[in-house]
Design a protein around this nucleic acid. Sequence first.
DNA 1: TTGTATGCGTTATCAA
DNA 2: TTGATAACGCATACAA
Lengths: 351, 351
Amino acid sequence: VNGEEELMAAGRPLDGRSPSVKDVAAAAGVSLGTVSNVLNRPAVVSVATRERVERAMVDLGFVRNEFARQLRMGTSRTLAYVMLDATNPFFTDVAQGIEAAAERADLTLVICNSNNRASREQAHLAHLLEQRVQGILMTPVDPVAPWIGAVADRGVPLVIVDRTRDDERFCCVAVDDMLGGRLAIEHLVDQGHRRVAFIGGPSSLGQVRERYVGAQRAWIEAGLPAEDLVALPTSALSVTEGRGAGERLAGLPSSRRPTAAFCANDLVALGLLQHAIGAGLKVPSDLAIVGFDDIVFAAAAAVPLTSVRQPREELGRTAAELLLSEANDKDHVHQRVLFQPELVARASTLS
Amino acid sequence: VNGEEELMAAGRPLDGRSPSVKDVAAAAGVSLGTVSNVLNRPAVVSVATRERVERAMVDLGFVRNEFARQLRMGTSRTLAYVMLDATNPFFTDVAQGIEAAAERADLTLVICNSNNRASREQAHLAHLLEQRVQGILMTPVDPVAPWIGAVADRGVPLVIVDRTRDDERFCCVAVDDMLGGRLAIEHLVDQGHRRVAFIGGPSSLGQVRERYVGAQRAWIEAGLPAEDLVALPTSALSVTEGRGAGERLAGLPSSRRPTAAFCANDLVALGLLQHAIGAGLKVPSDLAIVGFDDIVFAAAAAVPLTSVRQPREELGRTAAELLLSEANDKDHVHQRVLFQPELVARASTLS
DNA sequence: TTGTATGCGTTATCAA
DNA sequence: TTGATAACGCATACAA
């Protein structure tokens, strides 16, 4: 009788849907619980039946249904990183650091790209909450957006990466942008520049503001007149915007034209550099350029780019570790980690 | 009695777990089915109760459990892209194209990074199958890996991006790498080069092989001796490997040293360029360089890089559209789409 | 060592 | 218009 059932079960068609533990159980002639044991506590089941079940699994092409599994278990094994701009190598390096930490903890990392749009960010966040992810790392479009706090309020561990927000509800891992701005300006002043452009935007980006403020302070402390640090706002931190800024810079009357530019990131700096060279300017003698991030392409640029280096992978790794700490340690206390950037001087400022 | 129950329900603690439809129903004093209706067919429920339920939802901070939802529905609303190398701007551009198409179809895209490792790729794929994703796009480490066919056999729509494989089970979207290799070599021969290096690897990468074969054919057809197209294998397509290849190139006896290099991608080309400039070589007069992909940083390089351009976003978009077609159209027929690359000549080869 | 029964949170089918 | 109830596939406590 048992054998007959087995044959019938094995022959039963699955009409398109993928085989479940129940199907495997039927095919192997065992109970559903035994199949589950094979999956989760193989030690507890006899070798003979285990082999029979495993055989049935491969025959049927059984694949665990993660939804059912995690519905039952109540928690998922995935981490998420909501990235600000997937085309910026800085963030992909941060993601590498996160991924390394996630892999060590045997968690899967899914990466979402908000592409600098608050609406996308919000949509991703909502989706991730519905997915009951273990935790979320994010580089927000705007760190003070209310929905970020809402995530933390729901009890989902959250870590802000490369931004800060004075909030008791989550950890932040960032780089001291104000110091970065200071380093850039001190270097340019050291090199003898007395009129400098700050290029970057939009000013809604906190890191742009902070880099600018750091630059301003260093400028004032050097005893230079405030109006000689001229801000050229851009609408994004991209190569294209950098090129555009180059045009506007060239359009300034020579009396007011800066001899150096501090760009809010390397993409802008590379765009500016590209435009400058195209316009026949010599870098650094006609125009010195400092970038920010020290992405891998900065050193390979037309003129190797002086840049403010951030510890990219370490940023990601640390953020992931804080997230895991929050998820696992009952007495985790939120921290605000601030890394120190360092200036890497190259040909774009060294005459 | 009803009011009393409502109060009791509202007061019931959730001991940490997030509120479910049941909790919402209790808090709103309605049945579970009504809550579900509010979520899925709001038109069918009266305004008064709907508002009461919605109020209860925000009060409790209700968030749909995607696991339960999709367990019930049988299918998820997510697409996945298993990327080969997240730090290569080429692939992030492809991902942008995919994402655009996914967004239009109201699907969420999750990005996984195999980081050039077959084991990671396999792990990601297994996880995605367990997640019951609607479909998978991937740029495989090795297109003939058996587990790729296994995915298709399970009935999960799959599209190979930027690689080809002669297989009836899925679509491929790629660029004619052989033509790309041909274009690069024809251009270099046009420029008068008679000894050229092909730099790239590992040769297990089909696209490296194809670009090489295309180069070889064009070389032979130009009537040049086969041994004057010298292959310098690398162990990866990275900036670092490009620099290393530069050293090996410099180490060749001058009689056998090529006057030009065709690199299997732009990262290698940028590394080579960096090394060449560091070694005091003039590009292109001492060494001409052609890259592949035309990533955004190619034009901004130390010497703007001649490169073979691929339609990156279009590649991604087309792949995603084929995937959606396979997922939705009953009579979808698998296709092999091959885009034509084009050579973009810049200073690194133009004297 | 194996089988049975229950529930996770949701949607869908009924009946009321 | 609403409420009761049955799956979805899995893991587990408990019974055998």
